[in-house]
């Protein structure tokens, strides 16, 4: 059982907030839901209603025969909050399965981004050179612009986008994280 000292600050509410001080961490949740109207709103509403944070969200139908969709949510919180989030999601009637990939074991996370860079001369060449280093693919090109497609972890895309900024970054569209466990296990 975790026991911590109370906060010294006097509370303004009737009951002082819980004084648990724990480190916040990021977790990737894979959620299989019935693909029915409003199901995404149920999950998202649960996060807003209870004050949880969503860092990234991806959703699409993944099994047409079973009529199920897979939602991948990256959220952050203390271990207690993460446990609550999972428990709350599990009790939504439309949810079939929830798996915390972060605690489940090794897993892969990928994000795809489309990045538009506008520029000319040396900057344009530099953008193409960096794109090559990052294995980003030009999908569209004019004499003054590129649209790159880049796939990778969130950190890799963050790094690529940061490098493109001084080179004429204009527009970014990101998919959010899709994640799956390594090896034989499925959720």
């Amino acid at each position: 059982m975790t026991k911590t000292s109370s906060t010294s600050k006097k509370s303004q509410s009737v009951y002082a907030p819980s004084a648990l001080h724990e480190e916040s961490s990021s977790h990737t949740l894979a959620i299989v839901v019935n693909n029915e109207p409003g199901v995404l709103a149920r999950i998202v509403g649960l996060f807003t209603g209870r004050g949880y944070n969503i860092d990234s969200l991806t959703v699409a139908e993944t099994n047409h025969e079973e009529n199920t969709s897979r939602i991948t949510i990256v959220c952050s919180g203390t271990p207690a909050v993460i446990e609550q989030i999972k428990a709350q999601i599990k009790q939504v009637v439309s949810v079939k399965r929830v798996r915390d990939l972060t605690t489940f074991g090794p897993h892969i996370e990928r994000e795809l981004a489309l990045v538009k860079v506008i520029g000319s001369g040396e900057k344009r060449i530099e953008a193409l050179r960096i794109a090559d280093v990052f294995r980003a693919r030009p999908l569209d090109s004019t004499l003054e612009s590129f649209v790159f497609e880049i796939t990778g972890t969130t950190e890799k895309i963050d790094a690529f986008v940061a490098l493109m900024k001084p080179l004429g970054l204009k527009d970014v569209s990101r998919t959010g994280v899709a994640a799956i466990s390594r090896g034989l296990h499925s959720i």
């Binding site: 109370s6 002082a16 599990k90 009790q91």
Partner: peptide, 18 residues
């Protein structure tokens, strides 16, 4: 809550895991 029953071991039966 941080002063709630500080010295007890707690058993909780609930049908709602959350």
């Amino acid at each position: 809550t941080d002063k709630f029953s500080p010295d007890s071991h707690k058993i909780h039966v609930d049908i709602d895991a959350s």
